[in-house]
Design a protein around this nucleic acid. Structure first.
Length: 662
DNA sequence: CCTTATTTCTCCT
DNA sequence: GAAATAAGG
C-alpha cells in the first residue's frame, strides 16, 4: 500500500545507484516485502499446507547478494497488527479464504492459470514463515529484529538511532515516517534507486522541501495511506496543493466540503489517530533491549488513544521475546516455524503406517522409553488395526481417491512429488480416528532430526534446527542483536524437545482429523525430475535422511549398522488409469533403473515380480556409503521410529534419487 | 490536468 | 503489491 503515487511524484530525485555504494554500511531490510515477493514461487504449496522452502531461499538469495556487495543487512520483520487495523486484517483473511476456495474450484475445473492467480491472492506471509527465515538468518549470522507492531516505524527508528545507514523497502510510507535514506527497486544485479530526504528541494514542480514533517503526514492522510481511506476524489496532487494553501486540517476539510466533496464523518478523528501512528508508534530498541517509540511522546497526548493506534504496551519480557523472534507476535506463544509445524504433523501421520511395516517387533528404541508414556496396547495390536483399515484402499483405489488423484495432477511439480510420499491412502484417516478415540495412551511417534547448526540446508521435510531453544545458535551468537529474554529453557534436551513437538503435533492432528487423502498420478513425473534438479536434490536429501532413520531404528545401539531388508518397506500401488506412457508409470522399471544407476531403460522381461524386491548388493552398498556420510549428523530420538510407506512408483523413483542422486 | 479503474508482472522451471 | 495504461470527471 503506502501513499499511492508518491514515488511517482519523486521521480526527479530518484537516484540510480548500486548496492556497492553502500559497501561497509548497514541497511534495514523490510523483510516482509521480500517474503511477499517470495510467495510467487510457492503460493500453492503454502495454501495447501505443503512443505516448501521457496520463500526462505528467495530471501536468503537477496541477503547473500547484499553481503556480496559488502552491505550488512539488518532484517526487520513485521510484528502484530495495530489494534486500529485488526478489522482490516480480518477482512483480508476472509478475502484470502475466499480466494483459497476459488483456487480449489479452479483446480478441480482444470484451470491452472486461474488457480495460480487465486493461490497468489490467498497466500500470505505468516509469523511462522518468518520464523523459518529467522532460523536461516541465525545460521548465517545475520542480524534481525521483529518489530512489536509495524516494520516501517521500526526501520525508521533504527535509522534514526544510527543502527542502520538506510532502509531497503518498496514502501513509500517510510518517507512519511521520516526515513532519511530510502533504497527501493532493488533488482537481482544489485541495482537500486535511492531517495534521500535531503534531495527534496530538487523536485522542480513544488516546493517540497518547504513541507514540514507534519505537513507530509497530512498529505498522506488526505490522499489515503495505511491508516486512512482518504477523501474520495482527492489524490496526491490536490493534497499537496491544499496543504500548502491551508495549514489547518479543519480548514482543509471545510474547503473540501464546500467543494461538494464527501468527507467521511469520522475523518477528523481518523486523521488524528493516523497522525499519532506516524509519529509515536511503538518500536523495539535492540540496544537497550526494550520498547520505545519512534518519536518522543509529548505529555499532552492521551495515553489510552496511544495504546489503540500506536500499539499496546505489554509485559517487557513478552515484547523482548516477540522482537527476538522467540514468541509469536499475535498469540505470544512460542514461535515455531511453519515447516517445523508441518513436518511434525507429517511425521506423526506417517508413523502409524510404519509400525505395521515393522512386523510386530517392537523396536529397541520404543522399549527403551516405554516409561515415558503409558502404553496399554501392544505394538502388534496397532498393526492389525492398521492393516484392516489401510489394506483395501491400497489394493484398489476407490472413487474418492481417483478424484483426488486428478486434483493432484494440477499441483505444481514439487508439491505433486511431495504429496506422493507424505500421505498414504488410508493411513492418515486411520490415524486420525485412532488418535481421536484414545489420545493420551497412544505413543506419539515422531522423529526429530537435529542437525548441527553449521549444517546449512540440511532439513527440507524432516524438521530442522528451528526447534525453539534447543539448537538455535543465536544464543551463542554475540553478533545477534540481543540475547534471549528468558533462559529458563536452556537445559532442554532432545527428549524435552520431542515431547514438546509431540504435544503440538497431537493438537494439530486432532484439528485436522478429516485431512484429505491424496493419491498419486504419475503423468509427466520423469519430466518434472529432469526439469527441476534443485528441488529433486532437496527431496533426495530428505529421503536419504528417512532411509537412514529406518536403518538406525533397527539397531539397538542407535547406530546405523544394520541395513533394513528391503521387503520390509511395504509400498502401496495406486496406478493412474490414464497411463499413456508405460515406461514412465511402471514402478518396477524405475526401480531397476535405480539399481543400475543409469538412465538406460530396462526391458519389461527383466523386471522382477512385484512386490518382491530383489536383494541388491549394489543398493546395499549405495545405502551403506550414504550411511557413513551422514552418520555424524543424524541424532535419532531414542524412543521414536519412522518409516515411510510411499506409493509404489514414487518409492522406486525416490530410491533412485536417494542413493544415486539422479 | 487529476483521479480512478484495469491490466500486467513479480518468480521459477 | 506496484507500475503502466486507459478511461472518466
Amino acid at each position: 500500500m503506502g501513499v499511492t503515487g508518491l514515488l511517482q511524484q519523486l521521480k526527479e530525485i530518484q537516484h540510480k545507484t548500486t548496492l556497492s555504494q553502500y559497501s561497509g554500511k548497514k541497511l534495514a531490510v523490510d523483510t516482509y516485502g521480500w517474503l511477499h515477493r517470495g510467495l510467487i514461487s510457492c503460493a500453492q504449496d503454502l495454501c495447501t499446507d505443503a512443505p516448501t522452502r521457496g520463500y526462505v531461499t528467495s530471501v536468503m538469495k537477496k541477503v547473500d547478494m547484499l553481503r556480496h556487495f559488502g552491505v550488512e543487512p539488518v532484517m526487520v520483520f513485521d510484528g502484530a497488527p495495530l489494534p486500529t487495523k485488526e478489522g482490516t486484517l480480518l477482512e483480508r483473511r476472509l478475502r484470502r479464504e475466499k480466494a483459497r476456495e476459488n483456487a480449489q474450484l479452479m483446480v478441480q475445473k482444470g484451470d491452472r492459470k486461474g488457480a495460480w492467480k487465486e493461490f497468489m491472492k490467498a497466500a500470505s506471509v505468516t509469523p511462522e514463515m518468518a520464523k523459518l527465515v529467522m532460523v536461516e538468518l541465525d545460521r548465517h549470522g545475520v542480524a534481525y529484529v521483529v518489530a512489536p507492531y509495524e516494520a516501517d516505524p521500526q526501520m525508521v527508528y533504527l535509522e534514526k538511532t544510527g543502527a542502520v545507514d538506510g532502509i531497503l523497502s518498496e514502501d513509500s510510507d517510510l518517507l512519511v515516517f521520516g526515513c532519511r535514506r530510502l533504497i527501493t527497486k532493488l533488482n537481482d544485479y544489485g541495482e537500486c534507486i535511492e531517495i534521500c530526504r535531503d534531495d527534496l528541494h530538487k523536485v522542480p514542480r513544488m516546493a517540497l522541501d518547504k513541507f514540514t514533517p507534519a505537513q507530509w503526514r497530512l498529505v498522506a492522510i488526505l490522499s489515503g495511506c495505511d491508516y486512512t481511506k482518504g477523501i474520495p476524489g482527492v489524490g496526491l496532487k490536490t493534497a499537496f496543493n491544499v496543504v500548502l494553501k491551508l495549514s489547518n486540517l479543519d480548514k482543509i476539510v471545510a474547503s473540501f466540503r464546500a467543494d461538494n466533496k464527501l468527507v467521511p464523518e469520522d475523518f477528523l478523528e481518523e486523521a488524528y489517530k493516523a497522525d499519532l501512528a506516524f509519529q509515536y508508534q511503538k518500536v523495539f530498541d535492540p540496544k537497550i533491549n526494550s520498547l520505545s517509540t519512534l518519536c518522543e511522546v509529548p505529555s499532552d497526548v492521551d495515553l489510552d488513544v496511544l495504546e489503540v493506534c500506536c500499539g499496546r504496551r505489554l509485559d517487557a519480557n513478552i515484547h523482548a521475546g516477540i522482537c527476538q523472534g522467540k514468541l509469536h507476535p499475535f498469540s505470544h506463544d512460542t514461535l515455531i516455524s511453519r515447516e517445523h509445524n508441518l513436518s511434525a504433523t507429517r511425521s506423526q501421520s506417517i508413523a502409524v503406517v510404519q509400525t505395521k511395516t515393522a512386523k510386530g517387533i517392537p523396536t529397541p528404541a520404543a522399549s527403551q522409553t516405554s516409561q515415558s508414556f503409558t502404553c496399554t496396547r501392544t505394538i502388534e495390536s496397532y498393526f492389525k488395526r492398521d492393516e484392516k483399515a489401510a489394506q483395501p484402499s491400497f489394493a484398489k483405489p476407490n472413487m474418492a481417491l481417483k478424484r483426488t488423484s486428478e486434483k493432484t495432477t494440477q499441483l505444481s511439480p514439487s508439491s505433486k512429488k511431495l504429496k506422493r510420499f507424505q500421505t498414504t491412502s488410508g493411513a492418515e484417516t486411520t490415524l486420525s480416528k485412532f488418535f481421536a478415540s484414545s489420545p493420551p495412551t497412544i505413543p506419539p511417534v515422531l522423529v526429530l532430526l537435529q542437525p548441527k547448526p553449521s549444517d546449512a540446508d540440511f532439513g527440507f521435510i524432516t524438521g530442522d534446527s528451528e526447534v525453539p531453544d534447543s539448537s538455535s545458535p543465536v544464543k551463542d551468537d554475540k553478533s545477534s542483536i540481543a540475547g534471549y529474554a528468558t533462559d529458563d529453557d536452556a537445559d532442554m534436551g532432545p527428549s524435552t524437545v520431542n515431547s514438546m513437538a509431540n504435544s503440538a503435533t497431537y493438537m494439530r492432528l486432532q484439528a485436522s482429523a478429516s485431512t484429505k487423502i491424496e493419491s498419486n498420478c504419475d503423468d509427466g513425473y520423469e519430466n518434472d525430475i529432469d526439469e527441476s534438479p534443485i528441488k529433486t536434490e532437496k527431496i533426495s536429501i530428505s529421503w536419504r535422511q528417512r532411509f537412514a532413520m529406518e536403518a538406525v531404528a533397527e539397531d539397538s545401539t542407535c547406530k546405523p549398522a544394520t541395513i533394513r531388508k528391503f521387503e520390509d518397506v511395504r509400498v502401496t500401488t495406486s496406478k493412474s488409469e490414464k497411463q499413456s506412457d508405460q515406461r514412465k508409470t511402471e514402478p518396477e522399471e524405475a526401480f531397476c533403473d535405480s539399481l543400475e544407476s543409469s538412465s538406460s531403460p530396462q526391458t519389461p522381461e527383466e523386471i522382477p515380480e512385484w512386490p518382491t524386491y530383489p536383494e541388491s548388493a549394489q543398493l546395499k552398498s549405495l545405502q551403506q556409503t550414504f550411511m557413513s556420510d551422514i552418520d555424524e549428523t543424524i541424532y535419532l530420538s531414542p524412543q521414536r521410529v519412522l518409516t515411510i510407506m510411499p506409493q509404489k512408483s514414487s518409492a522406486s523413483k525416490l530410491l533412485r534419487f536417494a542413493f544415486t542422486g539422479k
